[in-house]
Design a binder for these strands. Structure first.
Lengths: 168, 168
DNA sequence: TTGTCTGCAAACACTTTGCACTTTT
DNA sequence: AAAAGTGCAAAGTGTTTGCAGACAA
C-alpha cells in the first residue's frame, strides 16, 4: 500500500513524455520498440504509485485485451526503464520496489514497518548534507537513499495487535 | 572490502561486553547458550568490519579447531544477534550485510558502486532532519538508513575501465 | 532478411524450513 | 528427562538466463 504525494508537475522541466523518452532510449541503444515494452511503459506511466514486478505482472494480466507480457519480459523491461531514467529501484523487505523518477523531484521515504506504507518527503537540507559529506571524503555522489523506518500515525492509533513484521 | 572508521570506544556507554549481552538476551528468551552460538558471537565480536553470512561461514571453516557451525545455524544466529541489538543488517547488491551496532555510535554510509567499499560517516544534522520530518508526519521513527552511492576517490583516480556494476 | 525479443522452462543466489538426532538445562 | 538446537537436505523467494521460435526494422 503506497501513499503517493501529489507532486505538482512543472517543478521539474519535462521535455518529453515518459513514453517518448523511453522510445528515444531504445533507439539510441539499438533496441526495438515492441508491443510488450510499449504496454509496460504505458501501464507504468499511468500508475504513479510504488510497485514491484509481481504486482505489475498481475496488473497486466488483469487487462481485458491480451496486452500481456511474460515475467522475464517484465523484469527485463523494468531494468531498461531504470537505465532510461524513468524509474528508480529500491529494495524493501527483500524485494525490488519501483517508483517514478522521471519528472519527479528528488525525495526520500518514511517506511512504516507495520503496514509497509511508503510516505514521500523531500528535504533540501538533506541534499546539502549529502554534498558536504561527499566532498569531505572526495567521493563523487551519484545518488542517495534515505529511508526512515518506524510506525506511521494510523498504525499507531489503531494499535493493531497484528504481528510486527519488522522486515526492512 | 569494508573501510571501518576507528571509533573511540567510550563515545557510547557500554555496560556489558557483546558476549555478555548476547548471553543475557538468550536467557531472557529461554534460549540456550550453545557452542555454535558462542563461536559465532566470539568471532563476530573480534572482527569489526562489515560482512555477510557466507563470509562468516567461510571464516569459521578456516579456523583450526573444529569450532564450526552450519550454514543454517549461521543464518539463525545472525538473526538473533540483530534481535539482541548487537548487529545491524542492511541489503546491498542483493545480499544482507551486517555491521556492529552495539557500542557504536549511529552512522551512515557512502557506498562505492565500483569497488563496493563502505565508508562510514555520521552527521548530527541528519538526525535532526530525521526527527523533524518524522514529527511533521506524526511518524514514530525507529531507525533510519542513509546510503550515498557513487564512486570513491581511489576508484576515480585509478580510472579502472572495469565494468561498472552499479548494483545498489 | 537480419538481428533483436519473447516466452518457456530451467537455473540462480541467497535464505529458510522440515525433521531426526544431538545437546544443553 | 525434557526442551531447545543442530545439521542435512530440500524447499522457498525473487530474479535471471539459455534457447528456439516470433517479430520489428
Amino acid at each position: 500500500m503506497a501513499i503517493a504525494a501529489d507532486f505538482s508537475l512543472g517543478t521539474v522541466a519535462v521535455a518529453m513524455t515518459p513514453h517518448e523518452r523511453f522510445t528515444e532510449f531504445l533507439q539510441t541503444r539499438g533496441k526495438r520498440s515492441t508491443r510488450q515494452r510499449q504496454t509496460i511503459v504505458e501501464h507504468v506511466s499511468n500508475h504513479h504509485e510504488h510497485f514491484d514486478a509481481e504486482q505489475l505482472l498481475a496488473d497486466l494480466r488483469k487487462t481485458p485485451g491480451g496486452a500481456r507480457a511474460s515475467r522475464p519480459t517484465v523484469y527485463r523491461t523494468l531494468t531498461e526503464m531504470v537505465d532510461a531514467g524513468l524509474l528508480k529501484k529500491m529494495i524493501l523487505a527483500g524485494r525490488a520496489i519501483y517508483e517514478h523518477d522521471y519528472g519527479y523531484p528528488q525525495h526520500d521515504h518514511l517506511y512504516c514497518t507495520s503496514c509497509r506504507a511508503l510516505i514521500e518527503f523531500s528535504s533540501d537540507e538533506l541534499t546539502r548534507i549529502r554534498d558536504a559529506v561527499a566532498s569531505q571524503y572526495s567521493f563523487r555522489a551519484q545518488s542517495h537513499r534515505l529511508i526512515i523506518s518506524g510506525v506511521c500515525s494510523s498504525c499507531r492509533s489503531s494499535r493493531s495487535k497484528s504481528r510486527h513484521q519488522d522486515r526492512v
